[in-house]
Design a protein around this nucleic acid. Structure first.
Lengths: 330, 330
DNA sequence: TTGTAGGCGTTATCAG
DNA sequence: CTGATAACGCCTACAA
């Protein structure tokens, strides 16, 4: 069933059908009704490919996300998808994982699908070696690229991110002032965000004369209990009185570790999560966490996409500041 | 830059370029190399619309999901997306929310985008009134529909779901046998899954001579604390010694309520979550929960999609049984 | 207000 | 092994 069939059955030309379909041009209400009737009768829906071919767009935005099963990213996908859809844009989701080569392939794939723009969700897409970000700049020559919570400088690349440096600096500073002497930073993936957090903590320590060597930034395994076990092991060779975590889930593991090893939180061990997710107030003690304004970042990113695609001028860089949400664990 | 430009530059016809591109037909390795060279030189990528037009498919599966920010659904999206992609199928994600009219519109939208199949994620798409499911059956006339954790009988509709009735029946039965006399069931949305759980609990109560009136199935507000507050209020008019929850997040609220009201868990109040998510072992006491085999369901669903699309015969209905994961809260 | 015809970029079918 | 050429279904000048 295509536009020809409809036009035949309605006794008009395809142009007229097309006009009815798109509400463009003038069509007498009599013919409009007739055409509409035939369309409904046959439950006809236009072929999106053909339409896209002519129009050069299918109103679709590609979203690259390392892992939607991550609490933070899934919320982000949710908000961005909903916002885009309210402007009648679809979202093509790709979960890339963490390997650079995969990220590259998925980006290529999205481009070959003729998406109108690509959103990179999270700082996992900002590589440590600038040369590894070249593929993003290349892609930006073909379509606008948006990064949520990450920053890459380049033409046609638009970033909205949270000032995580200041947040981690401040929380570390506060904790040290309240007595912490042996902090550790726990993370899972060496993303740009991770590196920034380490800098923040490191600088706060340096300023306060607290030692924070490389051995105090620790990679953790994925499962809650695996992670807790790893901490038990770590504690044999390294003493710590404070765990700053790259996300709330790691902080949960720290609580498990503390419970299993008879360490009281916050008395004997301060714990700080990150992202201010539901986890941070599901535990007891509840977790001090850092709200890095994911909602705001999503909103800004989605708005930027829409504005860019409708030809408006948008700012290549928007920075939002994080909040420290103090709860029982510190 | 299109196939004509490439063919011109390589001194061959577009047919040959197309053959090189698709690895179809015979091309001498000399010409192949020449064409490939030009393609790389120009960083040419074929236009997906045009390809889709000719092929009638773009290898894309639509996913309808009420709310990806839900822990359970986001994990499901993740697994399904990854599996489909490993077979080179894209995922077009739509978050529909819970309104029937929206669900209908989104389904239509996906169909108009010529997706090859649609996956309905979660039982939110199975309405209480069968007449309200007609739109799904209609859609199934155009393309195969897959339901993850829900069941609708119909041609070209394929369902994989978990036997939640037995799981809730058993847990309720066990709890009653261990002394529970005044259970309540807490949920958020009246989905098919919710209704099944209520039946399971209700039947177990009936069998054991425990009263379980309609007032014992209670709708809860969304936020953790709002929900806990609602429970405090509820407890003034209704006494309960056990809270069976439709998901783990609600169970977390119950723990908050218990802590705030000096009720000990499990001594004074048993709590049971649902979905066996990370939340269930983030709390203390850890939550008894029901593992409804989301991973397995996703795998089955995705495999079904692939098999169906490659023309194989698949079963219209696959049932998996749930596990009760007993932890400290009961 | 309506119709005709050309173009969008592929793939696929025939000839050669 | 290679090249013309006809689909694929829609949109949109341009004509009428």
């Amino acid at each position: 069933m295509n536009i020809y069939d409809i036009s035949k059955e309605a006794g008009v030309s395809i142009a007229t059908v097309s006009r009815v379909l798109n509400g463009s041009g003038k069509v007498s209400s009599a013919t409009r009704e007739r055409v509409l009737h035939v369309i409904r009768e046959n439950r006809y829906t236009p072929n999106a490919f053909a339409r896209g071919l002519g129009l050069g767009t299918m109103r679709t935005v590609g979203i690259l996300c390392s892992d939607v099963s991550d609490l933070y990213l899934s919320e982000a996908v949710y908000h961005i998808e909903r916002t885009l859809r309210s402007f009648e844009y679809d979202s093509l989701l790709c979960c890339t994982g963490f390997k650079l080569s995969d990220k590259k392939n998925y980006l290529k794939l999205l481009i070959s699908k003729n998406v109108d723009a690509v959103i990179l969700l999270g700082s996992h897409y900002v590589e440590e070696d600038p040369a590894d970000n070249e593929y993003i700049k290349e892609a930006a020559e073909k379509l606008p690229i948006f990064i949520m919570n990450g920053y890459i400088d380049g033409r046609n690349i638009y970033c909205a991110y949270c000032d995580e440096y200041t947040a981690t600096y401040r929380i570390a500073d506060e904790l040290i002032k309240s007595g912490v002497r042996e902090p550790v930073f726990l993370y899972r993936v060496n993303s740009e965000s991770t590196r920034i957090k380490i800098r923040g903590i490191s600088d706060a320590c340096a300023k306060n004369g607290v030692k924070f060597g490389e051995n105090r930034s620790v990679v953790c395994p994925k499962g809650i209990y695996q992670c807790a076990d790893a901490l038990s092991e770590l504690s044999e060779s390294l003493s710590f009185d404070c765990a700053l975590c790259a996300d709330d889930l790691i902080a949960v593991s720290v609580l498990k570790y503390a419970a299993a090893n008879g360490r009281s939180v916050p008395g004997d061990l301060r714990v700080c999560g990150y992202n201010d997710s539901i986890l941070s107030f599901s535990t007891s003690p509840e977790l001090t966490s850092i709200d890095n304004k994911m909602y705001a970042l999503c909103r800004i990113t989605a708005d930027n996409v829409i504005n860019k695609l409708t030809g408006e001028n948008i700012s290549p860089k928007t920075v939002v500041s994080a909040d420290i949400i103090t709860r029982q664990s510190t």
